[in-house]
Amino acid sequence: KEQQNAFYEILHLPNLTEEQRNGFIQSLKDDPSVSKEILAEAKKLNDAQA
């Protein structure tokens, strides 16, 4: 469930490039146990690119 939530949120971050988004999603698939950390990174990058 946590992985699904992170997946959904990353898909809807407006400021990520397609490449960045795909990278985060691939990381989620590779290691779902760190989905919280991956989501935090994605949000940080999204904010930095706002």
Rank of each mutant, 00 (worst) to 15 (best):
1 K>H: 15
1 K>I: 06
2 E>A: 08
2 E>Q: 08
2 E>V: 14
3 Q>M: 08
3 Q>Y: 09
3 Q>H: 08
3 Q>W: 13
3 Q>V: 09
3 Q>S: 13
3 Q>D: 15
3 Q>K: 09
4 Q>S: 08
4 Q>M: 07
4 Q>T: 15
4 Q>D: 13
5 N>T: 12
5 N>C: 12
5 N>M: 10
6 A>Q: 08
6 A>C: 06
6 A>G: 09
6 A>N: 07
6 A>V: 14
7 F>Q: 09
7 F>I: 06
7 F>N: 05
7 F>R: 06
7 F>M: 11
7 F>D: 08
8 Y>A: 13
8 Y>V: 12
8 Y>Q: 11
9 E>L: 04
9 E>C: 05
9 E>K: 03
9 E>H: 05
9 E>I: 12
9 E>F: 07
10 I>Q: 02
10 I>H: 01
10 I>R: 00
10 I>Y: 01
10 I>F: 02
11 L>A: 14
11 L>F: 06
11 L>N: 12
11 L>C: 02
11 L>I: 09
11 L>S: 14
11 L>P: 01
11 L>Y: 09
12 H>C: 05
12 H>E: 11
12 H>A: 13
12 H>M: 12
12 H>R: 07
12 H>D: 10
13 L>M: 15
13 L>P: 00
13 L>K: 01
13 L>T: 01
14 P>K: 12
14 P>E: 05
14 P>R: 11
14 P>Y: 08
14 P>N: 13
14 P>I: 10
15 N>Y: 14
15 N>A: 10
15 N>S: 06
15 N>V: 02
15 N>R: 04
15 N>L: 04
15 N>F: 12
16 L>H: 00
16 L>G: 00
16 L>F: 01
16 L>T: 00
16 L>N: 00
16 L>M: 02
16 L>W: 00
17 T>F: 04
17 T>K: 04
17 T>R: 04
17 T>W: 03
18 E>P: 11
18 E>H: 13
18 E>T: 07
18 E>G: 05
19 E>F: 09
19 E>C: 07
19 E>V: 14
19 E>S: 08
19 E>T: 14
19 E>K: 10
20 Q>D: 03
20 Q>F: 01
20 Q>T: 02
20 Q>E: 04
21 R>K: 12
21 R>L: 05
21 R>G: 01
22 N>Q: 10
22 N>F: 10
22 N>T: 12
22 N>E: 08
22 N>H: 10
22 N>P: 00
22 N>V: 10
23 G>E: 06
23 G>H: 07
23 G>Q: 07
23 G>C: 06
23 G>P: 01
23 G>K: 14
24 F>T: 01
25 I>H: 09
25 I>P: 00
25 I>N: 03
25 I>K: 02
25 I>S: 04
25 I>G: 02
26 Q>T: 13
26 Q>E: 11
26 Q>W: 02
26 Q>S: 12
26 Q>H: 13
26 Q>F: 03
27 S>A: 11
27 S>W: 14
27 S>M: 14
28 L>Y: 03
28 L>F: 05
28 L>A: 03
28 L>Q: 01
28 L>C: 04
28 L>H: 01
28 L>P: 00
29 K>P: 02
29 K>E: 06
29 K>A: 09
30 D>M: 10
30 D>V: 15
30 D>E: 12
30 D>W: 05
30 D>Y: 08
31 D>R: 04
31 D>W: 13
31 D>G: 07
31 D>A: 09
31 D>S: 08
31 D>V: 07
32 P>W: 14
32 P>I: 14
32 P>E: 14
33 S>N: 11
33 S>R: 07
33 S>W: 06
33 S>T: 14
34 V>S: 10
34 V>N: 11
34 V>K: 06
34 V>C: 06
35 S>W: 15
36 K>A: 08
36 K>D: 10
36 K>M: 14
37 E>W: 07
37 E>I: 14
37 E>Y: 06
37 E>K: 15
38 I>L: 13
38 I>A: 04
38 I>G: 01
38 I>F: 02
38 I>S: 02
39 L>W: 03
39 L>V: 14
39 L>M: 09
39 L>A: 08
40 A>D: 07
40 A>K: 12
40 A>Y: 14
40 A>N: 12
40 A>I: 14
40 A>F: 12
41 E>T: 11
41 E>Y: 09
41 E>D: 13
41 E>M: 09
42 A>P: 00
42 A>H: 00
42 A>Q: 00
42 A>E: 00
42 A>C: 02
42 A>Y: 00
42 A>M: 01
43 K>P: 00
44 K>P: 00
44 K>A: 07
44 K>I: 11
44 K>L: 15
44 K>E: 11
44 K>R: 06
44 K>W: 11
45 L>V: 13
45 L>F: 06
45 L>H: 03
45 L>E: 04
45 L>Q: 08
46 N>P: 00
46 N>F: 01
46 N>Y: 00
46 N>L: 01
46 N>E: 02
47 D>T: 09
47 D>H: 12
47 D>M: 11
47 D>N: 07
47 D>K: 08
48 A>R: 05
48 A>G: 05
48 A>T: 07
48 A>I: 14
48 A>Y: 05
48 A>D: 10
49 Q>D: 04
49 Q>W: 05
49 Q>V: 06
49 Q>S: 06
50 A>S: 13
50 A>Q: 15
50 A>K: 10
50 A>H: 10
50 A>P: 08
